[in-house]
Structure formats: structure tokens, C-alpha cells
Design a protein around this nucleic acid. Sequence first.
DNA 1: CCCCAGTCCTGCGGGC
DNA 2: TGCCCGCAGGACTGGG
Length: 280
Amino acid sequence: MPELPEVETMRRGVLAIVGGRITAVERVPCAVRPIAVRPRVDAFRRRAVGRIVAAVERLGKRVVLRLDNADAIVFEPRMTGLVLLADPPDREHLRFRLRLRGVRNRELLYWDQRGLGSVRMFRPAELDAALGSGTLGPDALNVTAAQLRDRLRTVRRPVKVALLDQHLLAGVGNLYASEILHVARIHPTQRCHRLTEAAWRRLHTALRSVLEEAIRYEGSTLADGTYRNVLNDPGGYQNHHRVYDRAGELCPTCRRVPIQRIVQAQRSTFFCPQCQGRTR
DNA sequence: CCCCAGTCCTGCGGGC
DNA sequence: TGCCCGCAGGACTGGG
């Protein structure tokens, strides 16, 4: 479930290793099936060892280590992946390790319970082809109101489903899509091409405010969730969710109507039928 | 292009 | 108590 706020929190934590030199690359033997690492570990090691971590960036829901030769190491956590500078939650799901010299943290770990995530290394042109602006939409934290509207206004899909499409907008996942639409007072089944100018402005404002608020709380750690920051501490935004996983509870805004759960594109959506309109 | 269903994966909780 | 099934969803694939 790491989405933009969780991955941004990871990125900020990983900044502590900028300036460090990579001394070793290991795929950690774990109790469960191995995750995807590309290229194969021996080639990965040849290219990474000796390089200095020059910057830590975020591309949508991925953490990118930019090396001093412009190559990039990309961690993609998907559902349960964690990038850690501290002890992992357990040993059996520890997947990958970079050892470092010249910085206080001597290793960076990748831990992934379900193993849907990956660690990949790219040359600059490969990174652009795989995750550049031709593939990934504008970042949800930096997109302007005009960019957001222009990018989505011809889409015929429901706005909740469109917000999950990383080719249209990068960073929003299932949890924050519901939260953002609630703050924006837009019904999740409303189709993008039918949204008014006022709705686009509300959506843009809500996008910024919800994501920034969630980053301030270092993301969401659900009851059954695994998300932790780089020090293996949970986030705090789950205590501030307005609608996500709160079906049946009274809407925190109107305090009159219970929050409703529906399924869109095989994913749960939560909303307030009162605050988010009944006309769609 | 657009959209949906199926797939990967593990752990958990409901139902019997 | 134990077992099975369904569910959680990010990103990708194949099909209509």
C-alpha cells in the first residue's frame, strides 16, 4: 500500500545515505520466493559497487537512488515493500541489501512481505523509457491545477478509477483516492469529462492538502498493514482518515450519513453520499 | 484508445 | 480447533 506520502517519507529517510559509497550488493536468501531484481545480481553488483549515492528521488510510488554516474537504483515497494536503514520487521522477508561506506548508516535494506515489489537498476535512457514523462503522468504533489485538468478532462472513466492510473497522474493509490475525493466533495463515480471547472479546482486543492497532510504524519500504517518509515516506525495518518475503511461510520464532515463502500475496477471505494453529491 | 478481468504474492479473518 | 476460501491492491497483461 505505499502510495505517494509513504514513498515520499521513505525518500526523505533515505537522504541520510547521500554521499555514501556502495561497497556490496546482496540478494538476501529469504524463506519465501525471491523478488524481482534486475539485472541479475552479479551484473547489478558490477555496476553498483564503487559508485556514490548522489541523490535520492521519488518517481511516483518508487524510490530512486541516483548514482554519481547517473545510473539509478529503483525500489518499487508495491503492496508491502519497505526501504529501511534500521532493523526490518522480520528476517524471513528481507530481500535485498546494499552495504555503504562513508555515511553513518552502513546498510540499506529492502524488505517485502508479499514480494510483489522489485529492485531494478537503470541507465539514464532506460529509466526515461520505463518511468519517464512519456510513461508516468505528472507527479501528484507537483502537478498544477491546469495540468491536472488538461490531463484528465477528456477521460471518460470514473474520476476515482482515473486517479489510480499512474499514466495519467503519478503517486495516488487506492487509499488516498478516496480521501482526496471526499475533501474535494466529488462523487467517485462521476466521470472525468463531466467535471466542472469548480470541481477541477477543488480536486487540485484537495490533492495537495491531503497528500501534504499525510506526509506530515509520515503516511498511513493500517491495522493489518505493514508500512513503516526507514527507521521501522509506523506512520500516523491512519488516525486522520476521513473515509478509507470507515464504511458504516458517520461521515466526519456532515455527521449525518454513514460512509458507504462500493467497488470500482475491483477495488474498494469509500465516500459520503451526502457530502459527495447524489447527482454523480 | 478505452476499459475490464485475471495474475502475481502473503497473511489474515470469516465461516463452517 | 482446524481448514478453506476470499480479500487486501499496485502494476502489468490479454482480450473485447
